[in-house]
Amino acid sequence: MIEANGLRKTYRARRGRKTTRVEAVRGVDFAVATGEIFGFLGPNGAGKTTTLRMLATLIRPDSGKATIAGADLLRDPREVRRRIGFVAQTSGTYTISTGRRDLVLQARMYGVPKTTAQRLAEKAIDAFQLRDFADREIGTYSGGQRRRLDVALGVIHSPQAIFLDEPTAGLDPPSRARMWQEVRRLRDEGMTIFLTTHYLAEADALCDRISIIDGGLIVAEGTPSDLKREISGDVVIVDMAAPGTEEMPEDTTMREARKLLAGEPFVHTSEVIDETLRLYVDSGATAIPQIIRTLNANGIEPGAIECRQPSLDDVFLAKTGRSLEE
């Protein structure tokens, strides 16, 4: 449904007389199958939005090519526009308009006559349950209501593929769950969904397949469970804050503890995240006693130890050396 090859975009940023080049996207490839929820996971500034805007015909790639729903992005952007929907991060509605007016306008922008547009708006109001507020000014909507309207606008013409840029950014947990429900419903209706997110939970729970993007490059790709399986074994997290206190551990203690534990044969890799040590081991159950023994033998008292399955953050950490959390 969506296929991209070597997409690349460099911005020229002017600051005074100097122009600096910012390589926002440095050649990304991916393919999204029909009826799939595909996610781009990455921190802010990773190139997610730029990639999305290229695919939605809003900006022209410097190089590379893409085919979306059978139409060539560079040669036939008009046809691409007809076949896709796009929901930007900023909603794109005037606060003094109403949901219904904008739905009708949106449908008409796709060239349908007024009566058809009104019927489509009515259908969207039902499908996304906007009836309670469809005729109120958009400025009075809650964040979740406004976001639901945004998505309703994006799919008013029943596109084959829909691009969602951070669909749940800034939403409270119930609204987020609601949005996930809507996205799954669209997928079940046969739509292909391409979304960006910087929420691990969202990528994990909602997406059938994800690409992890960082610094304008894709660093990993697969289903969330495949990616996590790549990090074999368990993750042991050692909280180095002294027991019973809120105090931050000394830097020297942190360094020493990491050096000691990284030297142990059962620890594959280790990372320092704030006041915690993250250790990748084969089995958490057998590692924990050894960790305690090693630390105690050197006069270090860990605050807490936790063992869990690898998460997408661990995948991100392993690929980029940084954590996506916080």
Binding site: A56, T57, L58, R78, R81, R82, I84, G85, F86, A88, Q89, T90, S91, G92, T93, Y94, Q106, M109, Y110, G111, L153
Partner: peptide, 10 residues
């Protein structure tokens, strides 16, 4: 984003 919303349509 009003302009972008228009620009992604035909």
């Amino acid at each position: 984003g009003v302009i972008d919303r228009c620009r992604v349509t035909p």
